[in-house]
Each structure stands twice: as C-alpha cells, then as structure tokens.
Simulated assay, not measured.
Amino acid sequence: MEVVILSGKEEAGAVAADAIEALFRAKPEAVLGLATGSSPLPIYNELARRHDELGLSFTQAQGFALDEYVGLPVGHPESYREVLRREFTERVDIDPSRVHAPNGAAADLVAACAEYEEAIKLAGGVDLQILGIGTDGHIGFNEPVSSLASRTRIKTLTEQTRADNARFFNSLDEVPHHVVTQGLGTIMEAKHILLIANGGQKAAAVKALIEGPVAAFCPASVLQLHPHVTVLIDEESAVQLELADYYRHTWANKPHWQGL
C-alpha cells in the first residue's frame, strides 16, 4: 500500500488523474471503476479539464459504478447513475452505453447482482478502481462487518451512512435504507485501487484502513491485502497516522520513473 499525504483535495485529484491518464494513454480500452460522493469529484474535474485541454480520450473505455441505491426511480437526480452522468460521463467523450451501474430498480435484485458481476468479468475486469471511504470505514457500500470475500449484493445502510449522505437529499427521510453494491471480494479483483480521502472527519477511518488490523469492522482494511493500492489523503485526514512522517519521506524521495 502506498500512502501519499498531499496538501489538499485539488492536489490529490491531480495526482490521481496522472495515474488515470497514464493508464488510458497506454491502454485506451481500459476499464475504469467509478465511485461517487464528494471525495472523487476533484478527480473527475481534472479528467474533464484534461479531456478539454489536452485531448485525453475515453472513447474506447468502459466504466463500472461501485453501487446504487435501491428504490429510487430511474432518472432520480441522486441515483448514482445520474450523479456519474453529471460529474463525469457527459463531461468527457466516453460512450454512455459503456458506463454501467448496478440496477437498483430491478424486479429481481438478486439476479441483477449476478448479472453485474458477470458484466465486469466479460469486460476483462477493472483496470483502475477509484474509491472513497466512509466515516465508518466502508468502501462502496460495504458497511462494517461485511464479508471480506463478498460479491455484488444488496446491503442495508447504517444510520451513520444515511446521515452522512442526507446532505445530498432534502432530508434524512429521503435517503434509501438499501443499496446494491460491489462486494469487497469484487473490489479486490481490480488491478489497481486508488482511494482518495480528505478532511478530519475521515481521520479515524483512514487510520484504521492503513495502520489498523485487517478486520470486517473496518471494511476498507481489506485493501492491505491488495498488491497495488494507492491512498491519497490530505493533512487533516492523516492526523492520526503513526507513520505519517515516513509516508511523507517516501513520497518526497520516490523515483520519478516509478509512477503510481
């Protein structure tokens, strides 16, 4: 796991975009795993800028969303398919039909989960997965005590997660209780995982992710077992890290040829 402590979310977005740009320059048909929420927005902003100003193209790309709410009508502005459309898809040249999301409105949700797993497999797997992290350590919507081997499935949100996400809705009552999410086992099959976090409210989760034990109570801690994980955080979210100075030293002295 590579831990990079940066000045803020804009710098983190630029560093993440460097890795994504390098991937698509080398492999235009790459598969990108897409996260929603506030944390990835600087990444999407920077990718859109590079598309407009530098010609970064996604015409051959595919994208797979991490998760989706259950029960929101098609086209609801806070459905994650719509969020990704606004924040990423319509700002670059990716074919909308090649951006996939779990079907939270399916009549048979269990079958829809199995179909989503198969679609990722048929695409050749995810080359680079963007992640955020919840205040309780969830990635995707894998809440605490999720199976570390879990696959795409239906999950019930904790009240903490619903409260955290209420800012996107008119009230807490509007936040769904259920979601469809890629499982931890699904996420772990991505070739490169890039997690971004910022703000003091994420400090405890970041500490557990990086320096805590691998445990289902902090689902993100499973990333310690992945061979290629990059964690981009700001100073506020790094305040509880015991080895923060070491992470700063390794980043400052990283060989230029190494990349992320």
Rank of each mutant, 00 (worst) to 15 (best):
Q129W: 03
L41A: 12
V110P: 11
F141M: 12
G125D: 03
G199D: 03
H100V: 10
Y44Q: 08
T59G: 13
A215R: 05
L72R: 00
E235I: 00
V239C: 12
E82K: 09
K254I: 00
I120K: 10
F168H: 08
H256W: 04
T135S: 14
G13L: 11
I196N: 03
T181C: 14
L225C: 14
L223S: 08
P77W: 01
R81P: 15
W257G: 06
A111Q: 09
A35I: 12
A16L: 08
S97W: 00
V3E: 01
T156V: 15
P77C: 11
A203H: 02
L109W: 02
L66P: 15
L194R: 07
F88K: 02
I210F: 07
A204T: 10
A17G: 10
H249C: 05
Q129G: 14
R81Y: 03
V206G: 03
E46N: 06
H249N: 05
A163R: 04
V110I: 14
S38G: 15
D18H: 07
Q160T: 13
L109N: 00
A123P: 13
H249M: 08
S221C: 13
T158R: 00
F64D: 06
V180R: 01
V31I: 13
M188R: 05
A61F: 09
A205P: 15
S39N: 07
D127M: 12
D67F: 12
I120P: 11
G55V: 12
L41F: 10
D127Y: 07
F58Y: 09
G185F: 06
G212E: 01
E118F: 05
A16T: 04
F64E: 04
E235D: 11
E211R: 00
F24M: 10
P73W: 01
T135H: 08
I120N: 06
V3A: 04
D52K: 09
E68F: 14
E11H: 05
A61T: 08
E189Q: 14
A17Y: 01
P219R: 00
P77K: 02
T181K: 05
S97E: 04
G37D: 02
R50V: 13
V180N: 07
A111C: 12
I43A: 10
A216C: 10
I43P: 11
L109K: 00
E2G: 14
H76G: 11
Q62T: 11
G13P: 15
R248M: 08
N142V: 11
V92R: 01
V231L: 10
E174D: 13
Q60G: 15
C218L: 06
P176H: 01
L260V: 11
L241Y: 06
